[in-house]
């Protein structure tokens, strides 16, 4: 079959992150390079257990579309950064209730939009998120850590 980059990219854009299923591996910037013979991915955190699942999910999606011979390569350098999360990915995170990463010292509540928020713990439900609380609507929320 013919290998075209556009359809491989389209397949990858459909592979959801296992922990935050509203964003794809492309939205998160995990996919570093797409070629007709290989796809390069990078882990978010060294110990993120989702990394193995992500690789298996990409493999499954490529195989199902007939791209069994496209190799998946894991690349450590340069290290993943939240800067690589796409604008679309950031919007999706916010809509899902996760404050997207940014360099501000405070976070805006993804529920009510208030900036009157506080950090409860720098470690949240996954390695990439911190636990915050909105002082306005009193709801707790996850914030994607700037990394």
């Amino acid at each position: 079959m013919t290998h075209d980059l556009a359809s491989i990219r389209a397949i990858l854009a459909q592979v959801a992150d296992p922990e935050i299923p509203v964003v794809s591996v492309v939205d998160l910037g995990i996919v570093r390079e797409v070629g007709v013979r290989h796809v390069a991915i990078t882990p978010t955190y060294s110990g993120c257990p989702a990394t193995h699942v992500i690789e298996a999910d990409i493999r499954k999606a490529l195989d199902a579309a007939g791209y069994q011979d496209v190799q998946i390569e894991t690349r450590l350098a340069p290290p993943w950064t939240t800067e690589w999360i796409t604008l679309e990915g950031r919007d999706k995170l916010k809509a899902y209730g996760i404050a997207p990463p940014d360099r501000r010292t405070y976070a805006s509540c993804p529920q009510c939009g208030s900036d009157n928020t506080e950090e409860l713990s720098r470690f949240g439900s996954t390695p990439c998120k911190a636990l915050w609380r909105c002082r306005q609507c009193l709801e707790p929320f996850d914030r994607f850590k700037c990394h």
């Binding site: 110990g47 713990s121 390695p127």
Partner: peptide
């Protein structure tokens, strides 16, 4: 619970480094 999560996350990071 916050400390529990923190220590587990630290352990996870370290385990990832060890694997590499």
């Amino acid at each position: 619970i916050e400390v529990d999560l923190s220590l587990a996350n630290l352990g996870l990071d370290l385990l990832g480094q060890a694997t590499l």
